[in-house]
Write a protein that binds this DNA or RNA. Structure first.
Length: 1190
RNA sequence: GCGGCUGUGGCGAAAUUGGCAGACGCACUAGACUUAGGAUCUAGCGGGCAACCAUGGGGGUUCAAGUCCCUCCAGCCGCACCA
């Protein structure tokens, strides 16, 4: 091959890698492991632009490098394929999001393949694939079935909690749980019904359902997590978000707050991300204080410092347990308990539950008005004007627990309901917000600190400066000791205790959306239960439309038969401490499973129960028998049954009723399936005590299966059939219909061997976007495993991610939740590492140049407000800057100045050549672009100014701005175009060459030619222009070896510290040097190709093959540099006088320093600079520099 | 307001531990080859005629500072009444 034909070469080797499965990861393996991971992409419809592959190229270089270094490399890719855009598209078009997603993934894959990545595609994961989300649901179930024990500081099975409850009640249980849990004794607990126990447990589980204020986004029809809301609008789509109270699933991430914070220290992540997480977790050490509410508001003026309630000044504890009007104390969290003598008022959040109780009648109207005002203020508004001070006095007073001072209680929106206790003790002398509030409402201010920087009105105010004053026993202390002393004192007094508070909130886990993982939960009597693991995956149902239902339920509520079959016994039987053990099936007792007269043989214990079927399930053989028996029964009805049938059949009562139908191990006489009603006619023998007992037992079993049972005796049927029918009808009317896939047969469709069970409605919300991404990195370790999320062997071997690369926008979302889930799995013993990603790099964004041309002409005038308006040929538009060229004109009788003005017109980047747009291109753009009208309203291209270049070609000058790459900005550069024009290797190297990985930088296609030329120069070392192969077997000389070995050394160092841009420069220098040396020697070029291969794998493979190698370059060995080739025999010393380089001299590298100094000082050039003075000092740094100080 | 990051030629940048600032590349200029050039090759390329001046500004430490310290400024990102 004579020319460097990148298209052919790249396709060839991409095919080679695919056919040879070159990058399939070995497992098991004796090699050391290296796991390098990209944050997987959401496959958007727009496809990749050149910014996306930046990180992928970097990780690919590392992966290929590590393979050459002998590592077993895990380098996978997949898709975060659940998400809003596909669903929004589905809502609009009705196309199933799976189809949209599939198409988008296909396009992504094509684009990725073009760039020659070395992913092991056999491990691809997609979060929307049931094989994958089965395990996301599985983890959810695990989370649901665990609680957080603060004593052991880890998650433990809920059964352990149950055991504690049954032994000691709530006493001694230290759990992370809801605020409103009640206490009970072991005896009380043991007397609770199972359902009650379950209900209580919901307040302890790590996944729980609760009514919370959520970020409701009507535009998207879903709730959003805090980090999905930016500036009061949704991060995706920018729709307004409001506070709304809804029942929602949450994850108790707060339980892990401390560990999430602590373990950040050991992570090699950027400071920025770690800081953001620290801030988000928001740990603050402080003190929880209780202020009693004063019994009666005092008349007249009060003075915060001195007013004491009469009779209480003896210092005795005045208010016992309860304060005024039966209201308990008011809890306040403060980080500055040392300033308690400076408290002059308390402020509650308007939503605070005590507000209602303590507000005095006189203040009620005002307070209510204020609450109304605060409530109706949207989040956005609240954030927008934080400067405005608002609030209202409740009329109530609290008592300072330290000095019994009376302090008024206010409400104010500056206090957040969600933080701390929703109440603050205000110290206007030490807190700027409190100060602003106090100033605004004329509340007293007591200084409790003195000294420098303690004046709150001054710029340099430092809240922790100075020493304490006006603070009793604290006086004279600094803030730190005062804090300690006061914390101790309040604990002694029993009015408070030291407490650590976290800002982080439990994360809302439900989304009212279709395109997400269904939450594997059903509801029985209003309480949530998880599905049995054997029922996973709970697949997304088909639905007719992807919108919420008419009454606002999530889209899944549209699904027919969105019900669960309960197959495990309820999870609240703590049979064992092993959380993983399923509740054991309850065997059928003797005689059960029999119906009517022609009964099959009774089943004995365990008999007929296949291991795979739950205890309510008959196996196929029994089912066949039941079916046969039922058919016989139908053929030979008793007279009573026949009479009944004639009255029930053909929907005579308004409901379809079947007769002689198998239900699990029974045959029911009559059944109305959608109503779950069974009607039995019992013969007279049923009057015996034993039979009644048995009937009752059977009824209860059927009840457990979800059926109601009506029993009539033969006599009742015979004597008053209409009464019987009325009773049945009444019952049917009262029962809710249970919809199923096919109400006529579903519960009876027994073909799979599954019996009829009670069906319960399933949860209709789905999981949030971050669910799948919180653990996908583990799935890659064993992506095809059907029985576990990953095998122990794989988890033990791969351990964690060695290098994780992705955008910093996930700082408090994915990167926090995934750490949380990983710690949870760590607690359960599934993973061995506390953190899953040792090293994280956030690649910078690649921005782009947007190009504009100016069009001039129009009329400008000022409106009444002095705003300048421009009148265009076809309309009026506001412009901010004008270039005037005054000319007077008359418009509507008014004298106006006729100005030329500048209007920016966006020109798509593909029409730009060397920063100008040629006339024919501009015309083509106007003609071709369908979006032209919508993007460039009011544009008159006749007014652009054309210039001519040397060849007479007309063009228009443009100016450019660096902006985010986006479709709407007309500045997107598609990697496919770059690959087809310059090749994937050029793209890869150029992306790296742009600059440091972490920094944002603008893309400039014109600069790519340098890298392109470089690769052609590499080619030229192997082939001349006639295609003659130039490589020789000559022995390399020292210069060539030096050029090679310093490159090996530098490239290796660069990759190890992720400095890819400098490697590219190094390669260029090396090729320049070898070209100057006219080096075509195999020994040199062969090693050069190996070190180049991670960056430019295609050309490296091609030339490697040309050198006669058969096996591909990917698993060759990275050469080791040899220092002996790098040693210089001499060094050219810069000789500087007083730090300024004046001369250069060559000395042997190992020369004696004193001798060197002497020689340097005796050189004429230096003597000239010495001007006869004796140097004060001469510094000689070996092989660096000589500095003469005069 | 708070936190993090970043400021070096016309542009992207390099200088890893303080030791010749601007490597490497783009753009540009001149020349060569050529019917042609969006090809290739050669040379030049921070500013200044020069002494010198230059790493956002100012100050400091040091024989020596882009690099360390203080201070101010600008840009980007994140958070934002967190008690």
């Amino acid at each position: 091959m004579s020319e460097y034909k990148h298209q052919d070469i790249e396709k060839k080797w991409q095919r080679f890698w695919k056919e040879n499965q070159t990058f399939k990861t070995e497992f098991p393996s004796n090699k050391p492991k290296y796991y390098v991971l990209d944050m997987f992409p959401y496959p958007s419809g727009a496809g990749l632009h050149v910014g996306h592959p930046l990180g992928y190229i970097a990780t690919d270089i590392v992966a290929r490098y590590k393979r050459l270094k002998g590592y077993n490399v895990l380098h996978p890719m997949g898709y975060d394929s659940f998400g809003l855009p596909a669903e929004q598209y589905a809502v609009q078009t009705g196309q199933h999001p799976a189809i949209t997603t599939e198409n988008n993934i296909a396009r992504y894959r094509e684009q990725l393949d073009n760039i020659g990545f070395s992913y092991d595609w056999s491990r691809e994961v997609r979060t929307s694939n049931p094989d994958f989300y089965k395990w996301t649901q599985w983890i959810f179930i695990k989370i649901f079935n665990h609680w957080y024990n603060k004593e052991s500081d880890k998650a433990e099975p809920i059964q352990v909690l149950f055991k504690k409850f049954s032994e000691n009640g709530t006493k001694g249980v230290k759990a992370v749980c809801d605020e409103d849990v009640s206490t009970f004794t072991a005896q009380e607990w043991n007397n609770f019904s199972d359902e009650k126990k379950h209900e209580i447990s919901l307040k302890y589980r790590l996944a729980y359902l609760s009514n919370t204020f959520v970020n409701w986004c009507p535009g998207l029809g879903t709730v959003l997590a805090n980090e999905e809301v930016k500036d009061g609008v949704s991060e995706r789509g920018g729709f307004p978000v409001e506070r709304k109270e809804m029942a929602q699933w949450s994850m108790r991430i707060t339980a892990y707050a401390e560990r999430l914070l602590q373990d950040l220290d050991g992570l090699d992540w950027s400071d920025s991300i770690k800081e953001q997480q620290r801030y988000w977790i928001g740990k603050s050490k402080g003190c929880m204080l209780t202020f009693q509410i004063a019994p009666q508001p005092p008349k007249g003026e009060y003075s915060a410092a001195s007013s004491e309630i009469s009779g209480l000044s003896d210092g005795s504890s005045p208010f016992g347990g309860k304060g005024a009007a039966g209201v308990g104390g008011l809890s306040v969290f403060t980080t500055r308990v040392d300033t308690i003598y400076g408290v002059t008022y308390l402020t509650l959040a308007p939503e605070h539950e005590l507000v209602d109780k303590i507000t005095t009648p006189e203040q009620k109207a005002k307070v209510e008005a204020y609450i109304h005002y605060a409530k109706n203020k949207s989040e956005l508004d609240r954030q927008a004007d934080i400067k405005t001070v608002t609030g209202e006095f409740t009329g109530a007073y609290a008592i300072n627990p330290l000095n019994n001072a009376l302090i008024p209680i206010w409400i104010g929106e500056y206090v957040l309901a969600g933080y701390g206790t929703g109440a603050v003790m205000a110290v206007p002398s030490s807190d700027t917000r409190d100060y602003a509030f106090a100033k605004h409402f004329n509340l007293p201010i007591i200084n409790v600190q003195e000294g420098e920087k303690t004046d709150i009105t001054k710029e340099d105010f430092d809240p922790k400066a100075g020493t304490m004053i006006n603070s009793d026993f604290l006086n004279g202390m600094d803030v730190k000791s005062a804090l300690e002393a006061m914390t101790k004192r309040v604990e002694e007094l029993g009015v408070g205790y030291g407490k650590v508070n976290f800002k982080i909130r439990d994360s809302i886990f439900s989304r009212q959306r279709y395109w997400g993982e269904p939450i594997p939960v059903y509801f029985k009597n209003g309480l949530p239960y998880t599905l049995d693991e054997s029922q996973l995956p709970l697949e997304l149902p088909k639905i007719d439309e992807y919108k919420p239902t008419a009454n606002g339920e999530p889209p899944l509520a549209r699904a027919k038969g969105w019900v669960a079959q309960e197959i495990a016994s309820p999870q609240f039987f703590p049979n064992s401490d092993d959380s993983n053990q399923k509740a054991s099936p309850q065997p059928l007792s003797k005689g059960e499973g029999l119906s009517g007269k022609a009964s099959p043989q009774p089943l004995s214990k365990g008999e007929g129960l296949s291991k795979n079927y739950s205890h309510h399930t008959a196996n196929k053989e029994i089912w066949q028998t039941l079916k046969t028996n039922a058919r016989d029964n139908r053929k030979n009805p008793t007279e009573f049954e026949e009479l009944m049938w004639q009255n029930l059949r053909n929907e005579k009562l308004g409901y379809k009723i079947r007769r002689q139908h198998p239900i699990d191990n029974f045959i029911a006489d009559f059944i109305c399936v959608p109503k779950r009603l069974i009607i039995e006619i019992d013969g007279d023998i049923h009057l015996s005590k034993e039979n009644i007992e048995y009937d009752n037992y059977r009824t209860s079993l059927l009840n457990n299966l979800g059926y109601q049972v009506l029993r009539f005796s033969n006599t009742e049927v015979k004597e008053n059939i209409s009464k019987v029918c009325n009773k049945i009808k009444e019952k049917l009317d009262s029962l809710p219909s249970i919809t199923t896939n096919d109400a006529s047969t579903a519960p009876l469709s027994f073909g799979e061997g599954l019996g009829v069970r009670h069906q319960y409605p399933l949860e209709t919300s789905t999981m949030p976007g971050w669910a799948g991404s919180s653990w996908y990195f583990l799935r890659y370790m064993d992506a095809k495993n059907e029985s576990e999320f990953a095998s122990k062997a794989a988890l033990d071997y791969w351990q964690d991610v060695d290098l994780y690369l992705g955008g910093s926008e996930h700082a408090t979302g994915h990167l926090l939740y995934s750490r949380f889930w990983h710690k949870f799995l760590y607690d359960l013993g599934y993973v061995k590492t506390k953190e899953y990603a040792k090293k994280l790099i956030n690649q910078g964004m690649i921005s782009s140049y947007s190009y504009f041309v100016d069009s001039y002409k129009g009329i400008i005038w000022q409106d009444g407000n002095g705003t300048e308006l421009a009148l265009l040929a076809n309309g009026v538009s506001f412009i901010s800057s004008v270039n005037r060229k005054d000319q007077e004109v008359i418009v509507n009788g008014q004298k106006l100045s006729n100005c030329y003005f500048k209007k920016r017109i966006r020109i798509p980047i593909e029409y730009i050549e060397n920063n100008v747009v040629h006339k024919e291109k501009l015309e083509e753009f106007i003609k071709n672009d369908p979006l032209f009208d919508s993007y460039n309203i009011n544009i008159d291209f006749n007014n652009v100014v054309y210039e001519k270049d040397n060849s007479g070609r007309e063009f228009v000058s443009t100016h450019s701005e660096v902006e985010k790459m986006s479709k709407s900005k007309y500045n997107v550069v598609n990697p496919d175009d770059i690959v087809s024009k310059y090749g994937a290797d050029t793209l890869r190297m150029y992306e790296m060459f742009l600059g440091p990985l972490e920094l944002s930088k603008p893309w400039s296609t014109s600069s790519i030619s340098g890298v392109s030329r470089f690769l052609r120069n590499v080619w030229k070392m192997f082939y001349d222009e006639n295609g003659k192969f130039l490589v020789t077997d000559e022995t390399p000389n020292d210069k060539e070896l030096k050029a090679l070995h310093k490159t090996i050394k530098k490239v290796e160092e660069d990759i190890e510290r992720f400095s890819f841009n400098t490697s590219v420069s190094t390669f260029m220098v090396c090729v320049n040097e070898l070209s100057d040396l006219k080096c075509h020697k195999r020994a040199i070029l062969s090693d050069f190709l190996i070190i180049l291969a991670p960056y430019a794998p295609h050309i490296a493979e091609e030339l490697w093959e040309a050198l006669g190698n058969k096996n591909g370059i990917s698993y060759s060995t990275f050469p080791k540099h040899d220092e002996k080739y790098l040693i210089e025999s001499s060094f050219e010393y810069p000789i500087s006088i007083n730090g300024k380089v004046r001369h250069k001299m060559n000395f042997p590298a190992n020369m004696d320093l004193k001798q060197l100094e002497n020689e340097a000082l005796s050189t004429p050039e230096i003597i000239k600079w010495l001007e006869g003075k004796t140097p004060k000092k001469v510094i000689v740094v070996p092989n660096k520099i000589v500095n003469v100080v005069l």
